[in-house]
């Protein structure tokens, strides 16, 4: 069983219109112009892993209200095992309106979801018994209102007590506090703040400093997105993982494919941090070059490996 954790999932609703005219009625007649899907970083990685052929992949987290039942059904359609704490408050809905002519992209990001203390207690109980069969746990994404910033630290401590390895993809204060629990793998995300550990990052030097600081704070291995590349920090060295000769069509889902492929590599090979990142980089490239947000088989990744360049930076 592979466990992924998504504490702040959302129903993603994409509406495609000819021209996005605010203030006007807009009519959508084609099914293809409305896309509704379950969202959440950990969940998307779980779907990728399931597509790669892993029989047991679960997603643990909160879902809310009546829409939570709908969300769970959508997840079930992807054959991912659900392990959800149902909250009274309704799950988030992220709305995307995509205009075709001219091309526009409007995103209404819903931050209204809130969980209660009782929900958190239930989540901890579910998580404790949910991870018993998992060697690796991926904790990924933002946290909803009502959770303390130490939630990821708590989850990592629990995993650690049970001898499980944690891969953390987080940001902000939840990430800062989680480092105390010394997760093995850390991928910070920071697009919305441009900060890692409260420090602004702009130059390559800033990124390298941030990576080293994450390691000093507790992470054993760090992978930082660096524009279209990745800087990966092993115990003593820093490498750049980049793609050559590619055509960027889509970046949505690339990070989640990266995380899933990293798991796929370490589950099937002797542990090699750099090679696992090369493979993960190839998976992200698969997504970048197509409109779909999911990997469907390992062969797609293997076909891209030649395009991935690994260089030692430090």
């Amino acid at each position: 069983m592979i466990t992924t954790v998504t504490l702040n999932p959302a129903i993603d609703r994409e509406y495609f219109v000819e021209t996005n005219d605010p203030g006007e009625h807009q009519y959508i007649y084609e099914d293809a112009d409305i896309k509704i899907s379950p969202g959440g970083k950990g969940l998307l990685s779980a779907i990728n892993l399931k597509n790669m052929g892993y029989p047991d992949v679960q997603n643990i987290g909160f879902v809310g209200g009546k829409q939570g039942l709908f969300f769970e059904k959508m997840v079930q359609d992807n054959n991912v095992t659900t392990n959800y704490v149902y909250t009274t408050n309704e799950i988030r809905n992220n709305i995307f309106v995509i205009g075709k002519e001219p091309v526009t992209y409007t995103h209404y990001n819903d931050y209204t979801y809130r969980v209660e203390e009782r929900d958190v207690d239930e989540l901890i109980k579910r998580y404790k018994r949910g991870i018993v069969d998992s060697e690796y746990v991926m904790i990924s994404g933002s946290i909803p209102e009502g959770l303390e910033f130490d939630i990821y630290k708590r989850l990592i401590d629990i995993a650690d007590e049970r001898d499980k390895t944690v891969y953390l993809h987080a940001s902000g204060e939840a990430l800062n506090q989680a480092l105390e629990a010394e997760p093995k793998f850390v991928v910070p995300y920071f697009k919305h703040t441009d900060k890692i550990l409260d420090e602004e990052i702009k130059t390559m030097d800033d990124y390298i400093k941030a990576g080293r600081k994450l390691q000093e704070a507790g992470a054993e291995y760090v992978m930082i997105p660096f524009h279209c590349d990745r800087l990966v920090f092993s115990k003593d060295e820093v490498y750049s993982i980049s793609a050559k000769d590619f055509c960027l069509l889509n970046w949505l889902g690339a990070g989640e494919a990266y995380n899933a492929a990293f798991f796929d590599y370490i589950l099937n090979n002797e542990f090699d941090f750099v090679e696992a990142n090369r493979y993960a980089g190839a998976a992200a490239l698969v997504i970048a070059e197509k409109r779909d947000i999911f990997i469907h088989e390992q062969e797609e990744i293997e076909d891209m490996l030649d395009k991935i360049k690994v260089e030692r930076v430090e």
């Binding site: 991912v80 149902y86 109980k125």
Partner: peptide, 23 residues
Amino acid sequence: MRTLNSVCTTDDVEDVIRLMHKT
């Protein structure tokens, strides 16, 4: 249906009723 939604032996009756109602 692939789900681990469940109760544990140490949960109480109120936990059961709440989960039954929500799911």
